[in-house]
């Protein structure tokens, strides 16, 4: 059994005097899809941001494929190249076309030959169903299309794993499906994924495991079927009831 791709061991984090993560221990194996669910403010985004060093953490350790994440060390650049992130608000570069967004990292960070990167970029955009939007600017795309470009941009880095922070929460309901479809196909191809989401259908269908986070601790974790189908903890039960039946 090889070491996990992402290992989080006893991680704590406070914003000022306010503890957000109170000792998180979890791991994501190679090729595994793990969904992280939980109420707003429970610390889901903070965990993802700590994993790729956008945020520092106070105690414990995070390792990516054996390399320790330290947000203020030069090694963080290498870790971030190996670990892509997809944001809730897409964060595409508005001054660059879809293709330019996708090849920015390969060309300027990984120093790949331009022609090669462009060709792969086109392939990736075709893969997320945007072959005809190669030259479009983000402002000319719908939310769903922007998020698919963002996913292609993440894939272009040839990452060992991708972190998703509520990738469909900013989308109109009818655009959610196209993004989830792309994510599902990545999962089917064996991509290692850690996904913060409120899409319980996606979690049930695609996730190998589900972690339920509440108040800075992981309250319950296990196979998606168990956590979502027969949650054992009252807080999980309560959360799922509210998510599945909002009124």
């Amino acid at each position: 059994m090889s070491a996990p791709m992402i290992e989080i061991a006893g991680v704590t984090k406070s914003f000022g005097a306010f503890p957000v993560l109170k000792g998180i221990t979890a791991s994501v194996d190679k090729g595994e899809v793990v969904c992280l669910i939980g109420p707003s403010g429970s610390g889901k985004s903070t965990i993802l941001r700590c994993i790729n060093g956008l945020e520092s953490y106070d105690g414990g350790a995070i390792t990516i494929d054996g390399a320790r994440v330290e947000h203020d060390k030069p090694s963080i650049i290498g870790i971030r190249t190996a670990m892509a992130m997809v944001f809730q608000r897409f964060n595409l570069f508005p001054h660059r076309t879809a293709l330019e967004n996708v090849v920015e990292g390969p060309i300027f960070v990984k120093k790949e030959p331009r022609a090669e990167a462009m060709e792969r970029g086109r392939d990736l955009l075709a893969r997320v169903g945007l072959a005809d939007k190669v030259d479009a600017y983000p402002g000319q795309l719908s939310g769903g299309q922007m998020q698919r470009v963002a996913i292609a941009r993440a894939l272009a880095m040839q990452p060992k794993a991708i972190l998703f922070d509520e990738p469909t929460s900013a989308l109109d309901p009818e655009l959610v499906g196209e993004v989830l479809q792309v994510m599902k196909s990545l999962a089917d191809d064996g991509m290692t994924m850690l996904v913060v989401t409120h899409e319980m259908g996606f979690a049930r269908e695609v996730a190998d495991r589900v972690l339920f986070l509440d108040g800075g601790v992981i309250v319950e974790q296990g196979p998606a079927r168990d956590v979502l189908g027969a949650p054992s903890h009252p807080r999980t039960q309560d959360f799922l009831r509210r998510v599945l039946r909002p009124i």
């Binding site: 790729n52 060093g53 956008l54 650049i77 290498g78 971030r80 190249t81 892509a84 992130m85 944001f87 608000r89 964060n91 595409l92 570069f93 920015e104 990292g105 300027f108 960070v109 990984k110 941009r153 993440a154 880095m157």
Partner: peptide
């Protein structure tokens, strides 16, 4: 927007 910085950092810039 600070999200631009984060996106840049997330691809290793």
């Amino acid at each position: 927007d600070h999200g631009q910085v984060e996106a840049a950092q997330s691809i290793g810039m």
